[in-house]
Amino acid sequence: MLSIRNLEAGIDGKPILRGLSLEIGKGEVHAIMGPNGSGKSTLAHILAGRDGYEITGGEVIYEGRNLLEMPTEERAREGVFLAFQYPVEIPGVSNIYLLKAALNAVRKHRGEGELDAMDFLKLVKDRMNLVEMDEQFLYRPVNEGFSGGEKKRNEILQMAVLQPKLGILDETDSGLDIDALRVVANGVNALRGPERSLMLVTHYQRLLDYIVPDYVHVLAGGRIVKSGDRGLALELESRGYGWIEEELREGA
């Protein structure tokens, strides 16, 4: 459902992704691991449609369409969802307002009618249970004054409400204590299914103890340099990233 082929991209003339290729099939969970600065977050934001990146080569095909030509909101409507590493605070816009606007935009795009207020609230409350969020968060401004853990739960709540086809989780584990990590992971696991693919972008293996991936890839120097199964993540945890960089140098 997602096919990234030789993607080259950078920012301000500085190359970050240098020929990245990756195939994600329907219902699969892929973990993208790599050292800091390897381009993991850049990849996540390019897929979600952040402005400011220069695409200098390659292509991204999502469900048979050229993803990079689609406006940001259209990607979201077509089922791409990015859970931000640093969710943005939006003073004056309440959480419920955002959820409603987002869900209605998606439903409209799918040719479904808007949910009435009662059904909407029922759906949202049901999804809030999934990430153990209190109802009061609905009426607070988006992410404003939320703790790190609350922000990450809020991201997963949005994902649970929007039911994307491709969920990209950018460092969702960063800044979470073990309890919050468990809650977030339970929420994500509940969203796994044959119709939904996930890309977990993470520096640490820890998250993968809770959300077990089908495939693990190592991103270094702007390319996928190694792919494997969960065992690769465990190896990275015990040996660090240094050996991969060495292997790369030897291979060069």
Binding site: R50, E73, F81, F84, L98, A102, A105, L162
Partner: peptide
């Protein structure tokens, strides 16, 4: 960007 990434035009 955040709002657009949530399907809002």
């Amino acid at each position: 960007y955040y709002l657009k990434s949530r399907a809002i035009d």
